[in-house]
Amino acid sequence: MNHDQQSCFVIEGRMALPYQYFAGAVGSRFIVALRDDKKILAVRGAKNGTTFLPPRQTCERTFESLEDNWVEVGPDGTVTGFTVIRYREPYQPQEPPYVLALIRLDGADAPIVHLVECGEVASMRVGMRVRAVFADDPVDNILAIRHFTEVK
């Protein structure tokens, strides 16, 4: 812009507001089972037998209701893809570097994104068999699984 920069300055501020998110009945049932019983629950559609994880009320493609047909999946699964997070942000679940992977739990149709603790990140590979490690303290979200670790 063609103007006098001497009049310009920058004011440090923030956007900050309180929020409260609700997981809903279906999400809550999943989280409570994870937190209290260390069980990973998914929902299975009747139309084509797809097992959805995270669980949800409905299939986005067929709109069939899914919420009543609960099945247990995992705790073991297979890594189908991964990245090593090396940049830092305040919302990250742990100090970088850490592995964020797509993990298909046994019994589920599609992978979820979660953390893998594997010692050296260089040892990560697709196809690795991993197992859920549950958090010691109660956590009310997907981090009730603290991370996955390699099954030797």
Partner: peptide
């Protein structure tokens, strides 16, 4: 039990005058 997550979401900003 219906799960709720309460948090303050905050992003530092630089507002140009």
């Amino acid at each position: 039990e219906l799960i709720v997550s309460r948090q303050v979401l905050s992003i530092p900003q630089r507002f140009a005058t």
